[in-house]
Amino acid sequence: MALRSTQTGFGSVTKAVHWLMAILFATMFAIGWYMDLLPLGMEKLVWISRHKSIGVTILLLAILRIVWRLAEQTPTALGDVAWEHRAAKAAHLALYAVMLAMPLSGWLMSSAANYSVSVFGLFTLPDLVGPDKVLYEQLKFVHWALSWSIVGLVGLHVGAAFKHHFINRDATLRRMIPWAAKGN
């Protein structure tokens, strides 16, 4: 399998980052809820630490992913319904947007709360804004709202992939499978 995507199939880099991102998204959603429900204690802090570190990892991966995507060609979308192509394009753009917006809102939120973000204890990110209780509450809402937007977008993404696979019976889902040979 080639590293780079072609006109008809995804390269191994795109596939790897796609699935890694999918796993990280699901993990972050689970950790986010779990840590929120934990009572204030050591355990909660440990999970908040992990949540922040993984969040920054996602932000870096998202940037790499966007750069990579712009630097290579993207396989042509399958199917011949024009509005579906437009909807898919919009949904993919929205997914890229939340990949950046979600960690950024978390980083901003941590800054506003005066809890700087340490990444796996290796380094600390600079604060984006000063301590601000009102802004913190607003960002907390944004972070929460974005989490459900992501659930909606991922649901749409998965639903559309299944629709292509089971109804249109085309290669849309198949060509993203890591072990599958490229092509449609």
Binding site: L45, I48, S49, N114, Y115, S116, V117, S118, G121, T124
Partner: peptide, 8 residues
């Protein structure tokens, strides 16, 4: 320091 990051 908290969660590996300093606070004032």
């Amino acid at each position: 320091t908290q969660l590996g990051a300093e606070f004032d």
